[in-house]
Nucleic acid binder design. Structure first.
Lengths: 144, 144
DNA sequence: TTGTCATATCATGATATTGTGATATGTTAA
DNA sequence: TTAACATATCACAATATCATGATATGACAA
């Protein structure tokens, strides 16, 4: 539950922060506009300071790459409803076992799902709520 | 501002819903467990009903694929700080113009950035807050 | 006009990712 | 043991994606 609590707090904090930022932006939009947009060097320097470094972009893109495949998304979608074993995933999605197993390996390697052995079965679940959030916000975006 | 308001309401609603769900799950975990996990056909049927259909997974995976490239993520990261023209993006990221322009085309085609012509310049910005949210939650996940 | 600057498009070789058949591992039951 | 089942790994042909050089477009200034 700690991960979940942490996640919620952070997300709400973030939303609040963005709301604040956007509001300020709307208020003093007009006078800032010209000054800011004319000196490109300033803009570039200012913005460069605030972005993460190279490695983090590489890591993050590897992470998002995982969401860029329909089979993996289907698995994520299923696991966001309920924890499932491999054979149930195969059946629910009508996919062959090799395909599912392969994609689960990729999902595991990228810390998106975890699993628990129960006899000869393996029960898979999502690692944490970030995954569910990202999936859900993405879905919200394309349905808009 | 309507998009933003809509987004925030939805996200918070979703977080509340998940909190509720998880809590209920914890409460009657033990008696449900066996019943649910033994009849796999039930599980499969139940879960199949609740997932989106084929096309939506394809569309969603195309959308997420865009986040799976460090150059595009860098651009998204920049634009989450401030709207920028193409040459500023090139300079801030030390990338050649063709690369940036190509990636902007992909971002545009996938409704992730929008732009506004100002003379011979094009000022780019993120389409909406979903993009910022997904980027931010992803970053939070890998930094955990 | 003509030149220059900001940006966009096209074509392409190098590289990465996909689903799947063949096969291996590991667990339970007979 | 042996067989059956659930899952994992390996290898590979088909396909997709990347960054970039060459080139085009379109706006402004001279």
């Amino acid at each position: 539950m700690t991960t979940f609590k942490y996640m919620v707090d952070n997300t709400i904090d973030y939303i609040m922060y963005v709301m604040e930022m956007k509001k300020n932006n709307l208020e003093n939009n007009n006078e800032d506009m010209c000054e800011v947009f004319n000196s490109h060097d300033d803009v570039v320097d200012r913005v460069k300071e605030r972005i993460p470094d190279e490695n983090e972009f590489d890591e993050l893109s590897e992470f998002f790459k995982i969401f860029g495949n329909p089979t993996r998304l289907k698995i994520i979608s299923l696991l966001s409803i309920e924890d499932l074993c491999v054979c149930d995933i195969c059946e629910a999605l009508d996919l062959n076992q090799t395909t599912v197993s392969n994609q689960l390996r990729i999902l595991r390697a990228n810390n998106i799902v975890k699993y628990q052995k129960e006899g000869k079965m393996a029960r898979y679940s999502l690692t944490d709520l970030h995954i569910e959030m990202i999936y859900k916000v993405g879905l919200e975006h394309i349905l808009e």
